[in-house]
């Protein structure tokens, strides 16, 4: 048993294959985070300033994405794509679903950041002669950013980890590529450990950065 722990048929080629998978994971994350953040900022600001009859339906629709497993969302979106006859690659479907999924969470983060700015501060800005637009860009945005950025980093890492589910609709990302190698060389523990290590290395430093930002910015409050 112990000899099998130290002798492995895992080759440099296999490692390259997994790193390529990690590249796909990062690309998926990039597009999902880009789309999700843009949508999230728009929806979040709308939710923060709109009357209840816009706010409530928008919130309810976005809540759907947070109440259904991502795996199910991916399968439903993928089969719906086939039904209506859009010819998207699984990668594109994955990006779109992940972006919508992220936007639902990002909306809440942006909204709570926006609402964390005290009304009195904003009124003070307006009475100092700042216009509505200046109030948003010079006062609300910097304060809201401090509140929202740590959670946004957490969310980004969450989405990065959730990309692992995309292989179910046929995208070969990091976890799937490790599965491919496991099927060939039959050393699941070793190969999966490498996959885990790569995920950890992609996530841990950024998680630390987020924690540090959160701590440092809290001191200035």
């Amino acid at each position: 048993m112990f000899s099998s722990l130290f002798e492995t048929s895992f080759s440099a080629n296999d490692l390259m294959f997994m790193l390529k998978g990690a590249g796909v994971t990062l690309m998926l994350t990039f597009w999902a985070v880009l789309g999700g953040t843009l949508l999230g900022v728009v929806f979040g600001v709308i939710r923060a300033i709109s009357p209840w009859w816009v706010n409530a339906p928008l919130g309810a629709v976005l809540d759907v994405f947070r109440s259904i497993p991502l795996l199910i969302q991916l399968v439903v979106a993928n089969s719906f794509k086939t039904i209506v006859g859009i010819h998207w690659s699984p990668f594109t479907v994955g990006c779109v679903v992940l972006a919508l999924y992220m936007s639902a969470y990002c909306t809440e983060i942006v909204r709570s950041g926006f609402l964390a700015v005290p009304t009195t501060t904003r009124r003070a800005a307006r009475s100092l002669g700042l216009s509505w637009r200046q109030d948003l860009t010079e006062i609300v945005f910097p304060i809201a950013l401090r509140v929202a950025l740590p959670s946004w980093i957490g969310l980004t890492l969450g989405v990065m980890k959730d990309t692992a589910m995309v292989w179910w609709i046929g995208v070969v990302e990091l976890l799937r590529s490790s599965q491919v190698i496991v099927t060939r060389i039959q050393e699941p523990l070793f190969v999966l450990s490498i996959a885990g290590l790569i995920y950890f290395l992609m996530s841990f430093p950024i998680a630390r950065l987020g924690a540090r930002l959160e701590k440092r910015w809290r001191e200035n409050d």
Partner: peptide
């Protein structure tokens, strides 16, 4: 480990 790897990886 729990927070920095995917849940799917942990199940695997």
């Amino acid at each position: 480990l729990a927070r920095n790897t995917p849940a799917l990886f942990q199940i695997y």
